[in-house]
């Protein structure tokens, strides 16, 4: 189909969990590929893996700055993509690669890893470890609407993507962002979204407020992005029923 958007997938220092999350859309992924997305290259899932010119690039993993190829690839990705989406905690915030000190086989000299936003301008963040299949799907559908939709659809897609674009302002997450951006700012109302979204159960709710066990935190950024007082775009979320129905219908 001519009016598909072209998409690429750059795989840097990540564990392939993000790729698996994308694939875990099952039939939805096939519908996406049938109707909306021309997936130009993606390691693991397809033979084509060299970076090409595309509308949207998803990037999994952080960049090892001691690895020339990784640095070249992230720069090439930026040059050849209209929109770059940092997919998952490693690309957005470094995630567990923040803990590496090098010394691992078989490339012990690879010790310095940066979230991609430290090297290139990133347009959209999808935090989390692993990011959820549903959010990847929602962003893919919205990216399609943004590039190929009617005026109304473009407006909706812009409104939906805006908070995920604003997340790109910060390249660090450590659980303390909950404390700094929400509690210290007098915004927490004790819903428990942070505790529910934490993939490693580092957060418990004590007397209605989050307590972050920082030794457990892997720095994926899920908690503060899931927090309704992290961001809340009332206009979009109030239409949750219609938007969810539209996305499900699009993937039928």
């Amino acid at each position: 189909m001519a009016d598909k958007i072209t998409v690429g997938y750059t795989h840097l220092s990540g564990c392939t969990g993000c790729t698996v999350a994308l694939a875990d859309n099952y039939g939805g992924l096939l519908t996406l590929l049938d109707k909306y997305v021309d997936l130009k290259y993606i390691p693991t899932l397809a033979d084509a893996r060299h970076i090409q010119k595309v509308d949207v690039s998803f990037v999994e993993g952080s960049v090892c700055i001691n690895d020339k190829l990784a640095v070249e690839e992230i720069k090439e990705t930026r040059e050849k993509s209209a929109i770059v989406v940092a997919l998952g905690g490693c690309a957005c915030y470094g995630n567990i690669t923040r803990f590496t000190r090098g010394g691992q086989q078989n490339q012990p000299q690879h010790e310095s890893y940066l979230p991609i936003g430290d090297l290139i301008k990133v347009d959209v963040f999808i935090p989390g470890c692993a990011p959820t299949p549903e959010l990847i799907r929602n962003v893919a559908v919205m990216a399609y609407l943004l590039l190929k939709g009617t005026k109304e659809q473009k407006d909706l897609a812009t409104a939906f993507l805006t908070p995920l674009m604003k997340l790109t302002a910060k390249n660090e997450a450590c659980g303390c962002d909950l404390i700094v951006d929400v509690i210290n700012q007098g915004l927490c109302m004790g819903c428990g979204s942070c505790a529910a979204s934490c993939p490693v159960r580092a957060i418990t709710m004590e007397y209605g407020k989050p307590n972050v066990e920082r030794d457990l935190c892997i720095k994926c950024g899920a908690c503060s992005a899931q927090c309704p007082r992290g961001f809340f775009n009332t206009d979009v979320i109030s239409q949750y029923e219609a938007i969810n129905e539209a996305i499900m219908a699009a993937l039928q």
């Binding site: 959820t132 979204s193 992005a225």
Partner: peptide, 13 residues
């Protein structure tokens, strides 16, 4: 929070 979790499920697969 519930509706955000449905529309933006960052950590709620």
């Amino acid at each position: 929070a519930v509706r955000k979790a449905q529309l933006y499920p960052v950590g709620l697969r």
